[in-house]
Each structure stands twice: as C-alpha cells, then as structure tokens.
Amino acid sequence: MNAVEVENLTKNYRGNPRAAVDGISFEVRHGEVFGMLGPNGAGKTTTVGVLTTRVRPSGGRVVVEGLDVLREATRARQVLAVVPQRTNLDRSLSIRQVLQCHAAYHAVPRAERRRRADELLERMGLADRAGDRTDRLSGGQAQRVMIARALMHEPRVLFLDEPSGGLDPQSRLFVHERIAELRERGVTVVLTTHQMDEAAKLCDRVAILDHGKVLALDTPGALVRELPGSNTLTLALDSAEGAAAAALAAVETVERVEELPGGRVRLYTSHDPGEVLPTVVKALAGHDLTLAGVEFARLGLEDVFLRLTGRELR
C-alpha cells in the first residue's frame, strides 16, 4: 500500500468552467518526500485540498493511508495533517494553546498534549514565545507554529503547501531541516513549491503540474537527465551575428542553438560536451570562425520546469 494514491482526480469549482485539476494520477510511497511543482494556478493547492478532505473532488479516487478521503473523511483526518499556504491560526489563543487545542481536537490525553507541545515548541525554536498571542507573529514564525501544530497529533502523512513561501533564508533552511528530520522518522511528506532548488534538495520524487495536469513525474535527477539537450556549451565568438548559428545548427549532436547578446552562442545537447566540442570546433573552422572561449553547464530543474510549462505568466 502506498501512503497516497490519486487516480484520475478532477476538480471543477462552481462557477469556473475550467477544471482546476484535470485528471491527475500519482502515488506517494511510504516515507517518501514528494514534491508538487507548478506555476501559479496549476492546481497544487486544490490537489492538497482534496487530499486533506477540505475540497470535494468532482471525479476520481483519492486514498490516503488506505482510506478513501471522500467516504472515510473522518478517519483519514486522524492520519494526515496539513500546513496551509495561508495562515489560519486561531488568533484568540497563545502559541502553546494553539498546539494543545489542536491535540485536544484529536483527543490526545492531557498529559501527552503538554509533553508534545513542550517538545515541539523546543524543536521549532518557539519555546521563548510560547505564551504570545498568534496575531502578533511574523510570517515565518506563524509558519513554524503551523508546522508544530500539524505534528501535534503525530500524523503519518504531512501535507505542506508552499512551506517556504515568504520565508527568509534562515527560516527556509530551518524548515528544510525539519522536513529532512521528518523523513528520517518515517513520516511521509507531500509538499508544494515553486522553488526548484527546494524541490531538488528535499524531494525523492517530483511531479510537475500545469493547468491541472501532471506533465512529468520522476526523481529530480532523472527529470533533468531526460530533458533533451540538458548539457549546454556557451561559446564566445568573434563573428557577425547570425553567421555562427547557421553553421552550428548543422552539427548533428547539437539539438538547439540559442544566440545570446555579445556574439555569444549557447548550444544544447544531450551528449557529453567533451564529445561535442571537437565537431563544433571543426564546423566553426569550416566557416572561418574563431572560438574565443567556451563554458560548459548542466541544466537544472528550473530549466525542466520552464521547458515544460512555458514562459508566460499566469
């Protein structure tokens, strides 16, 4: 059994003709950190909403820890927890009370509530602010409180909707460390993000979503490897614009040629750059062009993302 199983999930919001989620399927294994990457409006929050029993699916089957989130919603809420994209902390309570109330809603015995609250306040770096009201917290502090709150009933699957949105580098790193720690403890983590470095660093596998569809799903490394032309050579040439591009496009191992400002040209190839370079030099020589410099690079997840989802704004 997987921790999460999603089969042909669709969601149409009332009064919105376009499907927010349009037939997606994926599985999350036990103990995995699974990332959902996608531009604004891709359907990430909607998917998390369905998985956490907060959004009613229009079609498909969604199972968390073997429990159908539609038919077994109450049971499923015992094994999952969610850190939402927007803060929803109870502002009538102090930080400690937020944690203890949440545990009480989940029927954790009183002594155990105290013990867990103390431990999590410590772990989340909130111990000295435990008595503060939650309406005076900064974004990063609120985020940490929400993570602590989610862990109070010891969920088996934790959903984090943009866990590092709006955080400074210190807080971001802190959150990353906590996520890694959860992974060590065997908690399954599903997170959404726009940040490629975050996905590459934290996630065992990543699904790239756009317009409510899964465009690609694999380990971050495999996604980059399988991207056509994932190696680049940037050449500096002394030549008139346009001339080099035509010459280089003819090279068989070069998949794409991009002209950059300042007489530079970038070549994309799936082959080893060392293999490609001699043919490139030969082709240039054939056209009386001289090479002034060369730089090798490998594309990252961000390039995979842009290649799949395009460059236009949502």
Partner: peptide, 10 residues
C-alpha cells in the same frame, strides 16, 4: 479561516 483547524478534526 480560523475554523479550518476544527474542520480538520476527526
């Protein structure tokens, strides 16, 4: 949205 915490209770 404070009520969300209650809506996620079992």
């Amino acid at each position: 949205r404070e009520i969300e915490d209650r809506l996620l209770a079992p």
